[in-house]
Structure formats: C-alpha cells, structure tokens
Design a protein around this nucleic acid. Structure first.
Lengths: 266, 266
DNA sequence: CCTACTAAG
DNA sequence: CTTATTAGG
C-alpha cells in the first residue's frame, strides 16, 4: 500500500511563495495532504493558485492579509471544523481540522498556526491562551478518532536541540521555559502525542524548519525547529520517513519556513 | 568649450531606481547637473546612493516617502533656495532652485515636481494653486539671472503632440484645457519661456517621457511628454541637442519616467 | 529581511 | 502596476 504523504509548511504569504516557485516544489513531491499556515490571502486567491485538483479547507483571519491556515487534500474530508474550541480564536485563522477515512480508520488532521508571541506584550498572553486551549483540544481529538495528526507552525522550540542558538534565546518568545513546558506536556503521558520528526531523527541537532530572512541565517543553518508533526502514538508508529525540504536537497526556498514532509503507512 | 549637460528625471523612488540600474545610466551619461523628482527617500539615503562626487541640494517632503526634489551638480552652486515663494508649498518637496556661475554668466536651475492632480478632488486645487505660484515665479526668476532653466515633472501635457492618446484624456488631470492654458502662458510673450525639447524636435509626436507601468504602455510607446526643460530664450538658443533616454537607445528602464537630457553650449 | 496593507501616483 | 509606509512576523 502506498503510504500517505502529509506535508506542512508556513508559506508566509501564498502569493509570494508561488512567485518563488512553491508550485515546483509541490509538483515534485506528490503530497496527499498539504497543510498550510500564514496563507495571508483571500480564499479565491488560494483556490486560483492551488488549482482544482485539491479539496480545500481554508480558514482566513478576520484581519486582511494576516495568518490564515488551510488543509488541501487529494482525498475528500468526511468532516471539517475551523474552531479550536474557544470562540476568541475562531476568526484568527490559526486552526482547522479535517476528518478523513483512510483504509477503514478515522484520521483527523489539524493545520495549526500558534502565535509568534512577544515577551511583555499582549501577544504573549494570546499565545499562552491559545496553547492552553490547544492543550485541552489535543486529548479531546485523540478520544474522537483512531488517529490524530496536528501539524503546523507551533512557534515554540521544545528542546535545546531544536534551536541553533538556544542559549541566546532563553528569554525570547519561542524558547521560553513556560512555552517549552507546554510541549513537555503535549508529549507526556497526560496528553500523549508524539513528536514524529524527533522520534524518527533521534537526539540530534535540528533539523530546523525556520530561518530568519535576515543576514546569512539560512546559509549558516542558524534555524529553529518550530514546525511539527504531532501524532497520536499509533499514527506516529506508522511514520516511515520525515524530511525537511530545504537546500541542498531542495533548491527552491519559497518561504522563511521549509516544508516538513512525512510518509505514513496507514 | 564642452557643453553643459543637464538632465532631469522623475526617479519614482531613488532606492528603487538604483536597484533597477540608475547608476549604470548615470555612469554612461556624464551629466553636469542632475535634477531629480520623486526622490522619496531621506537625505542620508540620497547622499549614500549618489556618492560624494556631487554637490547635493535636496528638498524632502514633510510626509515620509513622498515627493522630494533634488539638484545634484558637479559644480558648486553659488546660492540655493527651496521655496517657490508660497509657504504652503515649502514642505511639499516640489521645488528647489540653485544658482550657478557658468563662463561669466549667471544660471538658475530649478527642479520642479508639479502635483499629478485628480479632477474633482483637493489634489486638483493644489495643482492649480502650485501652477499659479509657478506662473508668478517664472518671470521673477528670469529677471534675476542671465539664464533660467526650470526642469522637472510638470505633470501636464501641453499639446496634442505631447500625449499619445490625447482624445481619451481631454477630461483627465494632466491634459485638461485649464492646465494646458498655463503652458500656453509659460511659452507666451508674458512669461517668455521656451519648451526646449519641442523647439529642437519640431512639430512631431512626442517624444514621450512617461509611460504607465500598467499593461504594455511602454512597449507600445503609449506615453505622455510631461517632463520638460523650460528655458529663458537665450539659454534655449544655446541648446544643442535634447534626448529622452529610453529604449532602444538606453535599455535600463529604472523609473516610469525617462530622463530628458539636454546639452547647452554656454 | 520579508509579507501584505494602504495611500499615492 | 509600482513606490514607500506601516504593522506583523
């Protein structure tokens, strides 16, 4: 049986990503379920760019040109939702859920875009509030489907291996102890999800998924691993291979984030 | 005696112009006095881009990133002014004057940027008000110097030969009868200036100096001649040659306007 | 440093 | 269609 290929990527504006060759990446990757964050475009534009070969679930943000998440799939979802369970976030373009039937099992896929945060500002409060709701939503989803996969830009590096310059970022949004503790719990017995890429790659540095556009961050691989596949244990056990599509393997850099692609033998 | 080469160009943002190769144009043209409009950058940025081989007179607009005119010269001005004579326009970045001594004669050069206007809006009132003040300033300048040259983006096409699609623009700002009448007066006995390029090129269509970025306006030469050299008669008689630097002669299009370059044998 | 928005051209 | 600004990342 051909594995199910699921990719997540923060496109940082899908119009800009297409200008930079995102279509070439897509054409070469044969993705079954494509999860996008920071779409930053109206629904009609997204449909036009992706073409009609996808089923598209897209949650725009209320603010024009901000955030926006989507799930584009070759197979049709049996159900879709665009709420994380807290009305405050329903128009923020940060969370969509799609249910699929795959070989007799139910699979829920989530495309998530956690706030970037900013210490000492209301943005950080929103980030914690979102992570709180997410922490409650994860086990609820796991109770409803055979398999759950939450992917996206979670804007937190979990461990010292997930950020190149971790010492310099201990007080920065994205690597705060309080943020990292959420991920300890996501991956702990209570919530019970698995960090798929970390499980497959083992205890190594990276692989990073985001690099600042500034300076030579990308060339020097001064990056952060903040784009994840969080899977329920049965699904995580079915993960065959995980890849970050960045140079040198893939030479089109169409966003400041690189796609994280995982094959699941479901 | 080597003629004095004076160029005018609306750069539509000097930063963007340099990115598109304005420096290559400048390097190949050996200009003595360079008049700029729509500089749209802080003074420090302009000085950095032009380098230290110029004397620079630069009037920024009060509004950041808007308008801005400059005169960069290889020879040092004996005096400079940045008022057209009406305080309302003093912070609009639309008028600068520099006086030079050239071979024993006095020469005043003005870099002007007339409002684009918009029929039925306050912008059109400002445009008329500016043209009113300009109409008063022209003879005053002529009385003070041996030679006066007012160059820049005057945002009005004078005659039917100055706009490709003149019939379609009779009611549009830039070709309104009331605007064109100002130029009849500028070139009439009362004010007494000469349209240098028209005098040299004769009664032909164009040559145009501005083409919209939209569509194929540039390739089809659907343009407007709105960038001028207005000279007092003695100076106009000294004009040897006038050129619009556009393709095919010059292949770098660094602005939606092309430079108008004139050699004066002073 | 890059995105999209907006006003201006 | 392009410019620079602004907020957001």
């Amino acid at each position: 049986m051909k594995p199910l290929r699921i990719a997540t990527v923060n496109v940082n504006g899908i119009r800009a990503a297409y200008k930079r060759g995102m279509d070439q990446w897509l054409a070469g990757r044969d993705v079954d379920i494509l999860c996008l964050q920071e779409v930053r475009a109206p629904d009609a534009v997204v449909r036009e760019l992706l073409g009609d070969s996808w089923h598209l679930l897209h949650a725009e943000a209320e603010a024009k040109g901000r955030a926006g998440v989507a799930i584009a799939s070759r197979i049709e979802p049996s159900a879709t939702r665009s709420s994380i369970g807290e009305p405050y976030f329903d128009t923020s373009g940060r969370w969509v859920e799609a249910d699929f039937k795959v070989n007799g099992s139910s699979l829920t896929v989530v495309s998530a875009y956690v706030h970037s945060g900013d210490v000492g500002t209301p943005k950080q409060d929103d980030k914690y509030r979102f992570l709180d709701v997410m922490e409650a939503r994860l086990p609820a989803l796991a109770a409803e489907s055979d398999h759950v996969l939450v992917v996206g830009d979670l804007n937190v590096g979990h461990t010292e291996r997930d950020i190149r310059n971790w010492k310099g970022n201990l007080k920065k949004a994205g690597f705060l102890p309080e943020e990292r503790a959420y991920f300890d719990r996501f991956f702990g017995d209570g919530v019970g999800y698995v960090d798929v890429h970390r499980a497959l790659s083992g205890d190594v540095d990276g692989p990073y998924t985001w690099w600042s556009w500034r300076g030579k961050a990308f060339d020097n691989d001064t990056g952060w691993r903040i784009d994840y596949h969080l899977a329920t244990p049965g699904l995580a056990a079915a993960a065959l291979e995980a890849t970050v599509d960045r140079a040198p393997s893939w030479d089109t850099r169409f966003s400041d984030h690189a796609p994280v692609v995982v094959d699941y033998s479901l």
